[in-house]
Design a protein around this nucleic acid. Sequence first.
RNA 1: UGGGGCGUCGUCAAAUGGUUAAGACGCAGGGUUUUGGUCCCUGUAUUGGGGGUUCGAGUCCUCCCGCCCCAGCCA
Length: 559
Amino acid sequence: MISEDKEKGIDFIREIVERDIKEGKHGGRIHTRFPPEPNGYLHIGHAKAICIDFGIAEEYDGLCNLRFDDTNPVKEDVEYVESIMKDIRWLGFDWEDRLYYASDYFNKMYDYAEQLVKKGVAYVCDLSAEEVRKYRGTLTEPGRNSPWRNRSVEENLDLFREMKAGEFSDGARTLRAKIDMASPNMNMRDPAIYRILRKSHHRTGNEWCIYPMYDYAHCLEDSIEGITHSCCSIEFEDHRPLYDWFLDQLDIFHPQQIEFARLNLTYTVMSKRKLAMLVEDGLVSGWDDPRMPTLSGLRRRGYTPEAIKDFTDRIGIAKRDSTVDMALLEYCIRDDLNKRAARFMGVLDPLKVIIENYPIGKYEELEFINNPEDESAGTRMVPFSRVIYIERDDFQEEPHKKFRRMAPGREVRLRYAYLITCVDVVKDDEGNLKELICTYDPDTRGGNAPDGRRVKSTIHWVSAEHAVPAEVRLYDRLFTVENPLASDNFIDTMNEDSLRILKDCRIEPSAADIEIGIPFQFERKGYFCKDTDSTEENPVFNRTISLRDTWKRILKNQK
RNA sequence: UGGGGCGUCGUCAAAUGGUUAAGACGCAGGGUUUUGGUCCCUGUAUUGGGGGUUCGAGUCCUCCCGCCCCAGCCA
């Protein structure tokens, strides 16, 4: 199935893919890959890449490999390969039996390197890292040839074999490509192909003491796997000549590298290093802190794969630097959950209400619609009694002129229950609001008055006797500014109120039994899911996202 | 300053020289509503700047301006 929505236009990568199919390139075969380095957790920026790589393969009847680009053992760990696989599966993509590791190809890569040496286009260089830097020149000055550049093929071959055999200390020599030290493209100034590094690798152990560099390894990995379209982010654009150079020198299958812009989001940071800093400094609880833009964080927060995929579809693909408004991500999760999430009642900041004319000891069950957007979700019964809790901010003693909810003498509807009227306000000795005394109209069971009178608002509630205590965690943006990196120290722009913990919430009994991670709505308060921190005695709920709040906007616009 | 890339609504992003420059989010206003949610309607840019080519330019040429990336034995 080719992209259905012709009117929307397709992105430039799919254009290339469609053109290649049309022209019969690679026999019309499409094969992509998602090649993370297992050195950290995936974030929503990776989700964009995953959706491109796996998405294009799906759309054009192709295949997409998962390949761990594990060429640098100092940064990598199995912990990360496991979390990466979990996150990709969670997003709903399947690499079937095509799970690969760059390290699977170490022997092959080594053989190819010997070929380059034999061909006279690679040499062993004895310069130290610091010397190499000096020889490289600068952006405006050409570099100088290494004094080791013209060693004989035989000597290079011997030396390279000795490098592999562990004859030299770490960093003592490198294998370099012999290209052009005067190239205006710094990447072409005799880049390193292999370095000596005695570090145990998470898969190959101590088998190797030399490891291939990214530029050399990546194109080979793609070539070996028969990748047709190798999508990567834009900073690799000027590595492409090198990517092509290796494949041309070796005269092997030649995939096409295509670069696209990385995703940036407002009010957060996306670089692995910056996110790691938040974790290490204890500014968040971990990689899966619900405020983090990591996939594990978003999952714990209650984001769904569907919402994230919808988001990546909506942001499009292009080459220009861009920063997508967090509001779009928020729209996507609301839109998805609105259609699917079951509704429950939960009072986050309880205010006791005594319905004085409701018989003491009486109890009844009222029928609630589980999801007004989805009739098939059915109904449930919710207990009602004389003492209930309502949301504290659903009452104003001296109501704002646009406030439509409860106030002294005012009648409102308790959702799916009764119309009640506030007849008295009870305060403690210090004058703080303690509870409300109301009366109910027994003829309005279900919420409608037989005489047809209307009320201006409907509020949620829970029966005090039946409600379950719960902890609720409310999240806000991690940073107070759209672009934290524009500030001298991005840490300074963190939002101190990004997490608010409410410990005295009351929720309807059926909400307490919800499974961890299942999204639902507390009516009028937002979408939530039970957190992994929950215990039998203390259920904990994360607010994924609030509902759109028109009331807040009314207040704001009045100022 | 060498090289590479990129400049279209507040934010993403279409347009493939040819009707009034899509659409989405956001924002503003209105309608519906037993969630101040959802849903529905309305409004919201002449394309970084200057020259030029053309009957016609966001698309082509040219000069300028701005932003991003590259000087790891990281990826």
